[in-house]
Design a protein around this nucleic acid. Sequence first.
DNA 1: CAAATAGTGTCTCTTAGACAATATCAT
DNA 2: ATGATATTGTCTAAGAGACACTATTTG
Lengths: 277, 277
Amino acid sequence: MTPDPRRDEAEFLASYDPRDYDPVAVTVDVVALTIRDGALHVLLVRRGFAPYAGMWALPGGFVQAGGPLRGADAEDLPDAAVRELAEETGLSAKGGALGRVHLEQLGTYGSPGRDPRMRVISVAHLAFAPELPDPQAGGDAADAAWVPVDALGLTDSGEQRPGTTRRLAFDHARILADGLERARGKLEYTPLATAFCGGEFTIPELRSVYEAVWGEELHAGNFHRKVLSVPGFVESTGATSDRGGRRGGPRPRLYRAGDARLLHPALLRPSREEEIR
Amino acid sequence: MTPDPRRDEAEFLASYDPRDYDPVAVTVDVVALTIRDGALHVLLVRRGFAPYAGMWALPGGFVQAGGPLRGADAEDLPDAAVRELAEETGLSAKGGALGRVHLEQLGTYGSPGRDPRMRVISVAHLAFAPELPDPQAGGDAADAAWVPVDALGLTDSGEQRPGTTRRLAFDHARILADGLERARGKLEYTPLATAFCGGEFTIPELRSVYEAVWGEELHAGNFHRKVLSVPGFVESTGATSDRGGRRGGPRPRLYRAGDARLLHPALLRPSREEEIR
DNA sequence: CAAATAGTGTCTCTTAGACAATATCAT
DNA sequence: ATGATATTGTCTAAGAGACACTATTTG
């Protein structure tokens, strides 16, 4: 049963009864990405309870709907995503380390049967974070950790290769695969790679972000010149890093994110020939 | 109140009661675009009932959730979008004219208060259609029509300019603005402009699609050469159109969509300098 | 016939990418 | 000292866009 839009609002509210509706739950899941030790990591929680007990899942939870009277506890979707992220990481949402996190909506997943309990529509979000502390296992989670994406054995078709130890619950392998593909694309035409860095960063650090997300080595010289040539991508701080490269080399200069929202011309990743058809 | 994931599935189902939940309704809305008379049009319905009676809205409706027992009437989100489109246009979903329509998810809109009746989460979809017949006003709609997008006075910020006669209900101006921006971008790096054409089309017809969506005139010669140079964008049918241009000119050749899913190199639209920052 | 249009040729400028060179730093 | 790294320079090929030209069709 679904609401009948032919009734006007007053009549609707007067005759309102939750039992008239097919129950649908709306959740928010977050694909939170960060770079650790030069590798792309995703924030996962281990489920303590059925369904999928013991398996790993994206952090997420039910949206506070607010009920028919739309109480003050009704949450907007981005707010719900930030709240879930804060709960799982133990970080404060406002002003704290989460203040620098980029968050965008990824997509909505609502196939019947994706949750064995009931019809669940999940609005997935994508977050780019600078390096954050290890998460606190809390709430519903038996464990929580930043997990290297490579260790999950994801295929392009959104499944995990057989033999992968950490199995993902629900359709979270598909959601994560979609999030990774979105992230790879975003790095091409937006300056969001800077969201993985701290407030100040070097060009080689920025390059390592691209290499971690794209899974390809980039030519240092050409990358350097390209980043500086795109208007508004980065701006110089005038300062210089206090350390050279890991195994030698001069001290790189420091930059901060510029004011561009789109990169023009874009930084196209090499060798996309395969995925064109 | 939200479900407690700590209960296992059997216990969950045994104790299930719809009244335990904050009621949330999930709808599907469709931004259906087509080209008519060289101008971009969107499919709109006029609301016959409150809220927003008399205003125009995107076609859409409630998703059939299927209830806790997940009956056979449970709908996937894309299926719901196709069903809404078929209901509003009076066209058959399978095999009919809707078979050639491109459909993709656009985004999910769930701000509290966006629907005055209750908490409604709307999963918006974007459809590219070749020229279709005029829709049949039916179901909940007092009227239905393909409306020129330019006549809606949309601003970049997702609002309608004052003085626009056809007002859009709910947050549909924002959704439509997002859909248009997505469409403009998709034409750059995918061959989806062909989805606005019939099975066979000419390069000038394809160019008119780009001009209608981007709102800019393109250089005919350069466009022609560019389209043919991108691998897999179009393939020749060998045939020639039976008419020349409107006011003269040779008969253009006919092409059909190629097998590329991405355009490489992309067709970048001119003059994007403004929107970079 | 006059005007418009399809399709092709040519030129210039920008950019991507390969490669090289040099200065600086870690070990 | 040795090797790695940051940064800049140079060269080549590809592509975008401006412009011109010809052949063909409509009215």
